[in-house]
Nucleic acid binder design. Structure first.
Length: 951
RNA sequence: GCUCAGAUGGUGGAACUGGUAGACACGCAGGACUUAAAAUCCUGUUCCCGUUAAGGGAGUGCGGGUUCGAUUCCCGCUCUGAGUACCA
C-alpha cells in the first residue's frame, strides 16, 4: 500500500497511549535525562503552528536520548491560572475552571495529534487543588524563613528567633527591611507575641510591603504596567492613578548575588544570561555622605541597613560607582520626590522648586522617560559639604535622578558623566578635570586611565589605588563605605484577582475585633486552602479583590483571609519538581525521586520568559535547596530559546475606480502597478505558494461571489508580508489542518526543516510538499512498484553502508548541537542516495528506521513492525553505532585554485603526501595551462582539502 | 542611547575548526506520461558577458585590513530584529 499516514498515525498514537510507552519511572540502572518544555498557558485560541516548534524539537531530543540508553523524563502540563480565563469569566459569568478545562482538552487533543512522547501520567495543572496545595506550602516555607548573610542561605525563622533571644539584633547579618528595630535580647524577650510577629515580618522571605500600584478606579482593579497607556487603562481608557497598597512581596533581592553567580555555571544562550545580568544590575561602588551646611554633628547614630542607606536631616547620602571622582564633584542632585527637598529649599528658591516639582509631576505621567535630551533642574538654595575636600557644593533637584534607585541622590561629576556635564553647562556650574588624561572640552570623559590631579589625597595615583584610598578614608571619617548595589527589586507577590492560588494566610486580630491584623499562616494540615466560590469575578463595592465576595470565608469562622491571590508566576516557579512525582500527596515530590531526576537537562521555550519565569524559578529553586528539599543550585542546566514563528499574510489587490471606490475586480500581484488598488488581507489557508484558490475565495464571502480576476499566466498571485500571527490578519495556520493534509510526521519534519530552531522566522507552508515527498520516497524504499512490502536480506554494498553511516554520524552531530534543520536535509540526501542505488536491504533500512524515528515516529514504528520487529520496541532500541571505516576514501577530487580562485579539479589518491601532490600538479597539463607562462611562487597543499597555486 | 542577535540566489536555508559558496527543499522553466488535468518522474535553475557551446567575469549588507586562501578572523559603517531605558 502507498503511504497511508492517517491510519498509521492514528494506530500508533493509540498504541503509545494504551501501552503507556513513555511512562518514566525511577530506574537507577540507567542514566536519567530530563527534557522539559516551558509550561504552556492553555489559551482559548488553541495551538497555532508556532507553538509546537519547541515541543517538536524537545520530543525529537527525548526520543533520541531514549535510543541512546537514557531514562527520559518528558512531561507536559498546564499553567492554568491566569488572566484571560478570568477576563472571559467576567464577560460571560462562566466559572474560569470550566473554560480552563475546555481549553486544556482542546490543547491535549491538538498535542496528541502530533505524536509527542510525553509521559501523560505526570500531567499537572497549576489550578488544581492537589497542585496548588504545594504552591501554598512553598509560600509557607518562604514565610517561615529568613536570609542569613553569614551562612549565605535561607534558614528557618526559628534560628532568627534564637539569635534575637541571645544577641543584639545589630549583630544579626540578615537581609531585611530598612526599618528593623535595633534590639537587645532583653528588649526582644519583653516583646508581646504581636510585637514579635510584627518585627519578624521585616525579615521573612515573603512579607507585606507597601507598594505603589496602578489603580484604576473605574475598573475597580490594579493594572500591570503594560495595561496602562499614557496614564489611562488600555481597555476602556479610564484614568489610572498611583496608589499605595500593602502587598505580599518576595525577598528575591536576598538571592541577587547567587542569581548572578549561578549564570556562570549554566549552559544558556548568552543574550539570555546577559538580560538576567542587566536585570539583577550589580554595581560595585560606595556610599558617600555629604554633610549639610550649617548642620552640626555630621553623623547621626544609626545602624547600617540592608536597604539603600538612609537620609537624615544632617546629611545627604549618595551611591556612586566612581568614588574615585569625589574631588570632581561640583554639585549634588536629588530626585524631586526626595524627602529632604522641602527642608533644603530656601525661601528665595521656593517658587522655582515648587514650579519644577509641579512640572515633573505632569511630565512623569507622560514623557519623563521619552524625553532624554532636555536638561532641566532647579536649585534648592542649600549647600552640602564634600566630605574629603570640605568644599561647599550646591544641591539641585532634577528629574533625571530617580527616587526609587539607589538613595535618590547623586554626586554630580561633570567631567566624567555626560548627564552631569550637560547639566553643568546649562546651569553654569564648574567642570573640574581630575585625571591628567581626561579630555573634557566637548563632552564628559569617563576614563579611568591616567593619574589623578586636583584630587587632594589621591593626586598622582591610578584608578585602583585611588578607589581603595578614598574608601578607607571615608570609612575612617565615618562618611562612607564600599557598597554593592543591585538594581533588582523585591518581587510583588499578589494580585487583586480571582483566578489564582489563595494565599494561606489569615489576619489576627480580626478586623471586627478592632485589630489592624498581623498575618499568620494557616496550619500545614489545613492545606490546600481552596479557592472559594464567588457570585461575580469582580472587585467588591468597597474596592476589595473578588475573594472579598466569598460568603462566610473566614479562618476559624473569625479571622479574615488574605484576599489577594498569587501571581501567575507562583505555580510555574517549581513545577518541574512536581513532574518528578506528580501524584504525591505527602510532599511536593518524594526526595528519592528528586535525588534521581535532579534537574532539567534540557529546557526549551521562548525568550519572553527571560526575566520573569526564569529568574523566579531560579530563586525558588535556590530557596528550596537552602532548606534541603532539593539538591541542585540551578534547576535548568541547558536552555534553548526557540525562535518566534511570525505570521506571513497574503494580500489580494482590489481594483478601485477613478473615485477610489472599490470594484469587484481583483488584479494579480504582478500586474497591480497598472491599476489603482487597495490591498486586502486574504486567508492564507486558501492560498498555496502565493497562488490564490479562486473558487474558495469566491465562496469565502458573499460579496466576493461574483468577483472578477485579472490573472497573470492563468493564475492569481497574491502579495505577502510578515506580520504577527493573528486572527485579524487571516494568517493563522492551525497545525490540525496540516496534519489532516500531510500527517504529523510531515509537519514535525517540516517545522524542523524551516531553519535553525533559535531563529525567528515567518511561517510559510510553501515547501511542506518537499518533506511529504521525502516521506513517501522513504516509504517506497521498503516497497516495490506495486507497493508490496519488499525488503531483501542481501549483504549491503560498500556504497550503501557509506550512505548509512554518513547519516548516522551526521544526525548524531547535529542533534547534539540542536541543528535539527540540517538533519532533515541529510535524511533527504540519504534517501535520495539509497533510492538511486535501489537499495531495499534490511541491513541498511532497519538502521535508517531507528535514526529517523525521533523525527518521524509514526511511519518508523509502522515500518519497524513491517520489518518483523515487536511493536513498540522501536522507542528503546539501541541507536546504530557509527563506524568510521565505511567513510574512508582512497581518492579525493582536489579543487585546484590559482591565487585563491578555483579553476579545476584533479583526482588523486589520498595516500599521497603534499610534496608528491605538488610534483604531480606542476606536471599536469590541465593545470599548467593556467600558469600563463609564469612559474608558481608557491604551492599550498592541504591533504584531502585543497590545492592552491600562487603565481 | 546602551546591550545582544542577525544580513548568503526569486524563497526557506547549507557551508561544523579559515580550504570547491549556494547542499537540501520550495518556486520557476523545459520535457516525459496523460484526450486533458492532478499526481509522478526526468533535465535545467546565483548573476552578468557569450545565439548555443567552449569559455570568461562578478558575487555572501557596505568600505577597509590580515592571509596562499575570508560567508567564517580584525577595524569602521549601514540596515533589520529583540531586550532595556536618564541605574548614578
Amino acid at each position: 500500500m502507498d503511504y497511508q499516514f492517517k491510519q498509521i498515525e492514528k494506530d500508533w498514537q493509540k498504541f503509545w497511549a494504551e501501552n503507556k510507552t513513555f511512562k518514566a519511572e525511577v530506574d537507577k540502572s540507567k542514566p536519567k535525562f530530563y527534557v522539559l518544555d516551558m509550561f504552556p498557558y492553555p489559551s482559548g485560541a488553541g495551538l497555532h503552528v508556532g507553538h509546537p516548534l519547541g515541543y517538536i524539537a524537545s520530543d525529537i531530543f527525548a526520543r533520541y536520548k531514549r535510543l541512546k540508553g537514557f531514562n527520559v523524563l518528558h512531561p507536559m502540563g498546564y499553567d492554568s491560572f491566569g488572566l484571560p480565563a478570568e477576563q472571559y469569566a467576567i464577560q460571560t459569568g462562566q466559572h474560569p475552571a470550566k473554560t480552563t478545562e475546555e481549553n486544556i482538552n482542546r490543547y491535549r487533543q491538538q498535542l496528541d495529534n502530533l505524536g509527542f512522547s510525553f509521559d501523560w501520567s505526570k500531567e499537572v495543572r497549576t489550578s488544581s487543588p492537589e497542585y496548588y496545595k504545594w504552591t501554598q506550602w512553598i509560600f509557607m516555607q518562604l514565610f517561615d524563613s529568613w536570609y542569613n548573610k553569614d551562612t549565605d542561605k535561607a534558614e528557618p525563622i526559628s534560628t532568627l528567633i534564637a539569635k534575637l533571644e541571645t544577641i543584639p539584633s545589630e549583630q544579626i547579618n540578615a537581609v531585611c527591611d530598612e526599618d528593623v528595630l535595633s534590639l537587645l535580647p532583653s528588649d526582644w524577650n519583653a516583646f508581646s507575641a504581636e510585637e514579635k510577629q510584627a518585627e519578624l515580618l521585616k525579615y521573612r522571605l515573603t512579607f507585606l510591603k507597601e507598594s505603589t500600584v496602578n489603580w484604576c478606579a473605574a475598573l475597580g482593579t490594579v493594572l500591570a504596567n503594560d495595561e496602562v497607556k499614557d496614564g489611562f487603562s488600555e481597555r476602556g481608557g479610564h484614568p489610572v492613578e498611583q496608589k499605595k497598597m500593602m502587598q505580599w512581596s518576595m525577598r528575591i533581592s536576598a538571592y541577587a548575588e547567587r542569581l548572578l553567580q549561578g549564570l556562570n555555571d549554566i549552559d544558556w544562550p548568552e543574550p539570555l544570561k546577559e538580560m538576567q545580568r542587566n536585570w539583577i544590575g550589580k554595581s560595585v561602588g560606595a556610599m558617600v555622605r555629604f554633610g549639610l551646611e550649617g548642620v552640626k554633628g555630621s553623623v547621626v547614630g544609626s545602624r547600617k541597613t540592608a536597604g539603600n542607606g538612609l537620609q537624615t536631616s544632617s546629611f545627604i547620602e549618595v551611591f556612586t560607582t566612581r568614588v574615585d571622582t569625589l574631588y570632581g564633584v561640583s554639585f549634588l542632585v536629588i530626585a524631586p520626590e526626595h524627602e529632604l527637598v522641602a527642608s533644603l529649599t530656601t525661601p528665595e528658591q521656593k517658587a522655582d522648586i515648587d514650579a519644577y516639582i509641579l512640572a515633573t509631576k505632569k511630565k512623569s505621567e507622560l514623557d519623563r522617560m521619552s524625553d532624554v535630551k532636555t536638561v532641566s533642574g532647579a536649585f534648592t538654595g542649600s549647600y552640602a559639604i564634600n566630605p574629603l575636600s570640605g568644599e561647599k557644593v550646591p544641591v539641585w533637584i532634577a528629574d533625571y535622578v530617580l527616587a526609587g534607585y539607589g538613595t535618590g541622590a547623586v554626586m554630580a561629576v561633570p567631567s566624567g558623566d555626560q548627564r552631569d556635564y550637560l547639566f553643568a553647562k546649562k546651569f553654569d556650574l564648574p567642570i573640574l578635570q581630575i585625571l591628567d588624561s581626561q579630555k573634557i572640552d566637548k563632552e564628559a570623559d569617563p576614563t579611568k586611565e591616567g593619574k589623578y590631579i586636583n584630587s587632594g589625597i589621591i593626586n598622582g595615583m591610578g584608578y585602583q589605588e585611588a578607589t581603595q584610598t578614598i574608601i578607607s578614608k571615608l570609612k575612617e571619617l565615618g562618611m562612607g563605605y564600599g557598597k554593592i548595589n543591585y538594581r533588582m527589586r523585591d518581587a510583588i507577590f499578589g494580585r487583586q484577582r480571582y483566578w489564582g492560588e489563595p494565599v494561606p494566610v489569615y489576619f489576627k486580630p480580626a478586623r471586627s475585633a478592632g485589630g489592624n491584623g498581623l498575618p499568620y499562616l494557616i496550619k500545614e494540615e489545613e492545606l490546600p486552602l481552596l479557592l472559594p466560590e464567588v457570585d461575580k469575578y469582580l472587585p467588591t463595592e468597597s474596592g476589595e479583590p473578588p475573594l472579598g465576595r466569598a460568603k462566610d470565608w473566614k479562618y476559624q469562622d473569625e479571622y479574615e483571609y488574605e484576599l489577594s491571590t498569587m501571581p501567575g508566576w507562583a505555580g510555574s516557579s517549581w513545577y518541574w519538581y512536581r513532574y518528578m512525582d506528580a501524584k504525591n500527596d505527602e510532599a511536593f515530590a518524594d526526595i528519592d525521586k528528586i535525588v534521581y531526576w535532579k534537574d532539567v537537562d534540557l529546557y526549551i521555550g521562548g525568550n519572553e520568559h527571560a526575566t520573569g519565569h526564569l529568574l523566579y524559578s531560579r530563586f525558588w529553586n535556590k530557596f528550596l535547596k537552602d532548606l534541603g528539599y532539593v539538591t541542585e543550585e540551578e534547576p535548568f542546566k541547558k536552555l534553548i530559546n526557540q525562535g518566534m514563528i511570525q505570521g506571513r499574510s497574503n494580500f489580494v489587490y482590489r481594483v478601485n475606480d477613478a473615485e477610489g471606490k472599490g470594484t469587484n475586480q481583483f488584479v494579480s500581484y504582478g500586474l497591480k502597478e497598472d491599476y489603482l488598488t487597495s490591498a486586502l488581507h486574504v486567508d492564507v489557508n486558501i492560498v498555496e505558494n502565493d497562488v490564490l484558490d479562486i473558487e474558495k475565495f469566491k465562496a469565502s464571502r458573499e460579496e466576493y461571489a461574483n468577483a472578477e480576476f485579472i490573472l497573470e499566466n492563468g493564475k492569481y498571485l497574491c502579495g505577502s508580508e510578515v506580520e504577527k500571527m493573528s486572527k485579524s490578519k487571516f494568517n493563522v495556520v492551525n497545525p490540525d489542518d496540516l496534519v489532516e493534509r500531510y500527517g504529523a510526521d510531515t509537519l514535525r519534519m517540516y517545522e524542523m526543516f524551516l531553519g535553525p530552531l533559535e531563529q525567528s522566522k515567518p511561517w510559510n507552508t510553501n515547501g511542506i510538499e518537499g518533506v511529504f515527498k521525502f516521506l513517501r520516497k522513504f516509504w517506497k524504499l521498503f516497497h516495490d512498484e506495486n507497493f508490496n512490502f519488499s525488503v531483501s536480506d542481501d549483504a549491503p554494498s560498500k556504497v550503501e553502508l557509506k550512505a548509512l553511516h554518513k547519516i548516522i554520524k551526521k544526525v548524531e552531530d547535529d542533534i547534539e548541537r540542536f541543528s535539527f534543520n540540517t538533519s532533515v536535509s541529510s535524511f533527504m540526501i540519504a534517501v535520495n542516495e539509497l533510492t538511486d542505488l535501489k537499495c531495499n536491504k534490511r541491513a541498511i533500512l532497519q538502521d535508517l528506521v531507528i535514526i529517523l524515528s525521533p523525527y518521524a515516529p509514526h511511519i518508523c514504528e509502522e515500518l519497524w513492525q513491517l520489518l518483523g520487529n515487536k511493536a513498540g520496541t522501536l522507542s528503546f532500541v539501541p541507536y546504530p553505532v557509527f563506524n568510521p571505516e565505511y567513510l574512508i576514501e582512497n581518492e579525493f577530487d582536489y579543487p585546484v585554485s590559482i591565487n585563491g580562485k578555483t579553476k579545476t579539479n584533479i583526482n588523486l589518491p589520498l595516500t599521497l603526501e603534499p610534496k608528491e601532490v605538488e610534483e604531480i600538479v606542476l606536471k599536469e597539463e590541465t593545470i599548467t595551462k593556467y600558469f600563463d607562462g609564469k612559474y608558481p611562487k608557491k604551492v599550498i597543499v592541504v591533504k584531502g582539502r585543497i590545492i592552491n597555486i600562487v603565481l
